[in-house]
Amino acid sequence: MKNGLVQILSQPMDRRTAITVAGCAVAGAATAAASVANAINPFASPESREASRLEWQRYFQENYRLMSEEEKTEALLRLERLHQLKHGGRISVSGAEPIEKVLFGYAFNVSKCRGYLECVSACIRENNQDRASGMAYIRIHEHRNGEFDFSKASDTFDHPVPAEGHFYLGTQCFHCQNPPCVDVCPVKATWMEPDGIVVVDYDWCIGCRYCMAACPYDARRFNWQAPEVPEADLNPNQHYLGNRMRQKGVVEKCTFCIQRSRDGRNPACVEACPTGARIFGNLLDPQSEIRWVLANKKVFRLKEDLGTDPKFWYFMD
């Protein structure tokens, strides 16, 4: 199997297809002109020529979900090599597939959360979020006792916590079982994996931001500028659909730390929470802690009226 354009170019075609393909090739060529010029430039260093060649291949690669096994492997190796060529450091990009009979779910104990925001910073570090713009997937809302109105809660509080007379509640991507963001994407760049995680292919996303308009939970973030993470702070253990570095102009979001959860570990926010307010696990495993919570606690979900069926529950002790 060859990827995207190569596949099309190697087929016999009629005149009309040829014109379409040629048109696209021109558009692609224009944008990738710099990388091609560099790839064939005899005076450029071998490293920068190799990087340009890899960028060129990456530009024409197929939507990740539709790649063959070899194409996936190629894409993963390409990302690792590109990082080494550009930044010198080594990263490992996993393509770990979903595990059978696993459907991930999350529960948040409102009684235990005290607003320490450890989850927020752990998430930023784990997922290589842009430091310059202060991007964060998790928002902790500080509610006054006796009120449950998000518009009156504060998610920018800056004082010792827990504040007297307040309670705390976190929101992030709820990995809806019926996700509106997936429906609206014009290019199928975002989808729900069989284990229930809603992911984005950062190399396929065109950056139209329709998914952001469709999300009722403010779960999605856009790279308004090229994201920056200092090499020393970079988490090198990455997943293609998770915390690998994004590019300028694409959408990203919480992936339940896919690089950890598919490895049998808890997401970074769960691990970082000092009060144990966060519970994560396999909804299909009757012995899991999350199933115990769902069976024994009075749970609720947010904006249930929208029919999104979030896999993210809240409960109180």
């Binding site: 995207g4 354009l5 099309i8 297809t17 379409t20 393909v21 696209c24 558009a27 692609g28 944008t31 990738a32 530009y59 939507n63 539709l66 429906d183 609206v184 994407c185 014009p186 290019v187 199928k188 760049a189 190399d203 396929w204 996303c205 065109i206 950056g207 139209c208 931001r209 329709y210 856009f222 790279n223 590019q247 300028k248 102009g249 694409v250 959408v251």
Partner: peptide, 25 residues
């Protein structure tokens, strides 16, 4: 308006992967 105009070929029928008929876009 799009963040990645270079990747707009992804919407072309045949070449890209258009999410038709689900996406109104």
């Amino acid at each position: 308006d799009v963040g990645g105009p270079a990747r707009l070929w992804h919407v072309l029928p045949g070449l890209g992967r258009m999410n038709f008929p689900r996406s109104m876009l």
